[in-house]
């Protein structure tokens, strides 16, 4: 199935240089399992940074040249809408779950799904084609290592979770062989409203995880029978909702 991977304008947090986001590199790895020639799509001033995606497994890259700071959403929606109407429409659009270098809200895939009228699924860690044609089985990451296996009708937008398999190794020759197609964007003259209150980031400490109130102070048992100790341990686990035993 034809797959398009959206590549964002990610920035290195230290140097500020353009780079390929790791999440998107993982998305390319997932796309390469479904599609022999996955394509990339990027809106921005140039392909610096995102061209590394070709080395990680993309076969072609569409770059819509838009000035820096421009909202990428109209250009993305217009390009994908035309390709969805073409003879060979993409079945799957993959993207990272958050940007790295812009406002980082993670809203672009959702706004794009709204604009194109496509269903969206978040936090994929594994993809495989469904039994029926035009379906896809997506494993979504959940807390505590659980997975939610969702069958979805294509075309769809899927965002990728950091627990997805690591990216394919980078190959320089592959990057040189990849085809980059440049397109001109209709300049909308509506820049993203950058908030005036932007200031350097200050790392703030997180709350310390300390023992909860449920585990009081004096729960100390000196020299109980082993059977009594086992009963106490299981009762503690069940009272605090860690595990339930003996219920299948």
């Amino acid at each position: 199935m034809k797959t398009v991977v959206l590549l964002s304008d990610a920035r290195n947090p230290v140097s500020g240089r353009a780079q390929l986001s790791r999440l998107e590199a993982q998305a390319i790895g997932l796309a390469a399992e479904l599609d022999e020639s996955p394509q990339g799509l990027h809106v921005g001033p140039g392909e610096e940074g995102v061209s590394a995606g070709l080395g990680h497994g993309l076969c072609g890259l569409d770059v819509i040249e838009a000035p820096e700071g421009e909202d990428p959403l109209p250009a993305l929606a217009a390009f994908l809408a035309t390709s969805l109407k073409s003879d060979e429409p993409p079945a799957l659009v993959l993207c990272g779950r958050r940007g790295e270098g812009g406002l980082d809200t993670g809203l672009v895939p959702y706004l794009l799904a709204e604009a194109l009228g496509l269903p969206i699924l978040a936090d994929a860690v594994a993809l495989r084609p469904g039994e029926a044609s035009d379906t896809l089985v997506v494993d979504q990451a959940m807390a505590k290592g659980a997975r939610r296996r969702v069958t979805i009708r294509l075309p769809a937008i899927v965002t990728v979770h950091p627990l997805a398999p690591p990216p394919l190794p980078f190959a320089f020759g592959r990057m040189r062989r990849g085809e980059i197609r440049r397109h001109a964007a209709d300049v909308s003259e509506v820049p993203v409203d950058v908030d005036a209150g932007e200031r350097p980031h200050r790392a703030r400490p997180k709350l310390m995880r300390t023992a909860g109130t449920a585990s009081g102070g004096a729960n100390l048992h000196v020299g109980p029978d082993p059977e009594e100790a086992a009963r106490l341990i299981l009762a503690y686990l069940e009272d605090n909702g860690i595990r339930r035993y003996g219920q299948g």
Partner: peptide, 27 residues
Amino acid sequence: IERAGLAIVQDAQLVMPALLKLLQERE
């Protein structure tokens, strides 16, 4: 033992088979 919410002063080698036995009974 100080850090624990439930502290049991007993030999772990004795508690392990007791726990296993109790879990098998529950199952």
